[in-house]
Design a protein around this nucleic acid. Structure first.
Lengths: 336, 336
DNA sequence: CTGAAAGCGCTAACAG
DNA sequence: CTGTTAGCGCTTTCAG
């Protein structure tokens, strides 16, 4: 027996009250007598009534929905964030609309879709957006918080960690270990994280009077990083250390070096990653990496977004959280 | 300049047409003259108008939204499925509302939330639901497809793989390798996957005249599996092989055995997992496992759901897809 | 092809 | 506290 579309009117009729009494009974703040509410609830149960969220949204002009956008969940760093954020919003009584950025550019269409869907806020997980796109969303008065990417547009809040500092530490540390040919395994070249980590890394090398002899791009993906590693180490003068712009790629490199190139990591090659995903701490990998404070990041970002949803005029904030070097077993002075 | 809430009325006024002409211009099937549509589009661009999806949903009684529910994204098997499903629905012009089942039971509240939100279909990723809950959703005429869990309710479509067969193979194969004490590392005890894999496993052992000497529960989680492994192998007569109900737990066990117990895997202990997540194929792990045809599963499930959304009266279907043993390096006859 | 009119199911004043 | 009355922004007959 399908009870499809029982309306508040039906309930009102059965309960012998007005339709607005039904409405009130279902909003906790409204003033209704206990007896009315009881009658309404009983009739509702009998008919299987559920308030229609869509109708409510239309009139209150608030969808209580947040859009979360990301480009991939291959990296556990982001699936972790997604889960955290999702549970947070759920606890706040918000719904979460999920969007994936298409691999091939057409982010405008997604943005248009998001705007039409009347979400009250947008959380961007590692999504690169243009100034024009940022301006577009801002014009509609939709608060946006962007995690792990910066955009040259003042109207949007950003939460990230100190990529430059992390890269700097990685470069300087590998050099101070005595490595001579320290290569870079990049992420997505247009992403701000890639650029900042690389810039910091190069500066870290420079502080030890070194330059980067080789670099390849792995697009923050496992497979691409495997390929990039093969290219990097097929050279007649291969690197003796590697800084990868995230852990997923660092782990890919470690697999390839140990099992395809039969190189000792550490010993013959040192590797440093970025993020500190749970897997990095697994003893088999023991990856030295730059930890991003993922809990703090997601907390900051979600709270910030909620605040901006609540208060029309909250100015955007930029947060750059500190990173922490995690010394583990994938780095060691080179054997001669 | 916030252009908040430009309505079709505003556009109509500027374009010098009726409000319904605007509406028609934005629905591809509707008949409008080219000139009208052009005028409307121009005015829309000028005002930054976007059709309000919520209002549209209210009147068409179709939200073009699918709810996806899961309990955790720690297992990459499910984050992969989520991404796949999400992109599929997006391509079909559907929105995806994301829900996480609370760790502590209260799934009824989530279900209620889902029903209120007027989604057109529900995709359950490894969510255990009661008959009553299944009946509730069914009464509202909302199609449900459940992946990797069975429920004793005929009205709901189910897509899964042959857990029993996979378990059977694992048990029999380990026994045939010559292992004598083959333990079981279980998932969530109430889940159908756990029960079927365990039942198959026990029967596989029996086919080789063996029984299971020890079993512990890891709740399909990494950390819990580490603990369970420690308990299992602290025994005076520890196992010489292990079948874990998913890869995540199998990998956890491998880490603990190799690095805390200093046992050779394979050699001293063989391990078999279930799922075949990408990490299982990494050379460091080389985990022998039972592959679930994840692409086919998600494809079947999403197509099935779309069909049921389109056709009121489509009968539910049950699909059990075949599994494939993946022989890799974590299994080998025991050394004496 | 186009405009006028009637709601979708609900909330929010407004009187009583 | 309760019912009545207007709509929220849009789609969809229905005439013209």
């Amino acid at each position: 027996m399908k009870r499809k579309s029982v309306t508040s009117r039906d309930v009102a009729r059965l309960a012998g009250v007005s339709q607005s009494a039904v409405s009130r009974s279902f909003s906790p703040e409204a003033k209704v007598s206990e007896s009315t509410r009881r009658k309404v609830m009983e009739a509702s149960r009998e008919l299987g009534y559920r308030p229609n969220t869509i109708a409510r949204s239309l009139i209150t002009r608030s969808s209580r929905t947040i859009a979360v956008v990301t480009y991939s969940l291959e990296n556990p760093f982001y699936s972790f964030m997604l889960e955290k954020a999702s549970r947070f919003f759920q606890a706040q009584g918000y719904h979460l609309l999920m969007f994936f950025a298409p691999p091939s550019g057409d982010f405008d269409a997604v943005l248009d879709d998001i705007i039409r869907s009347q979400v009250e806020g947008v959380l961007l997980l590692a999504i690169t957006m243009t100034q024009r796109q940022a301006g577009l969303v801002d014009d509609f008065g939709i608060p946006v918080v962007i995690i792990n990417r910066t955009v040259d547009y003042a109207g949007i809040s950003q939460v990230g960690s100190d990529n430059y500092q992390g890269g700097y530490w990685a470069g300087r540390y590998l050099a101070s270990l005595g490595h001579q040919r320290i290569a870079f395994l990049g992420g997505l070249p247009e992403s701000s994280t890639h650029q900042q980590r690389e810039a910091g890394f190069l500066e870290g090398l420079r502080s030890k009077d070194q330059t980067c002899p080789a670099s390849e791009v792995g697009n923050y993906r496992y497979e691409d990083a495997c390929q990039a590693t093969r290219r990097l180490f097929s050279s007649p003068t291969p690197p003796d250390a590697l800084f990868a712009a995230n852990d997923l790629m660092a782990l890919a490199a470690m697999e390839i070096l140990r099992h395809e190139f039969a190189l000792k990591v550490p010993g013959e090659v040192s590797i440093i990653g970025f993020d500190d995903v749970p897997m990095a701490a697994w003893p088999s990998h023991a990856l030295t990496t730059v930890r991003q404070p993922v809990d703090m990041m997601i907390e900051k970002a979600t709270e910030l977004l909620m605040k901006q949803v609540a208060q029309e005029d909250m100015p955007p904030e930029h947060h750059i959280l500190p990173v922490t070097p995690m010394l583990r077993g994938s780095t060691r002075p080179p054997v001669r």
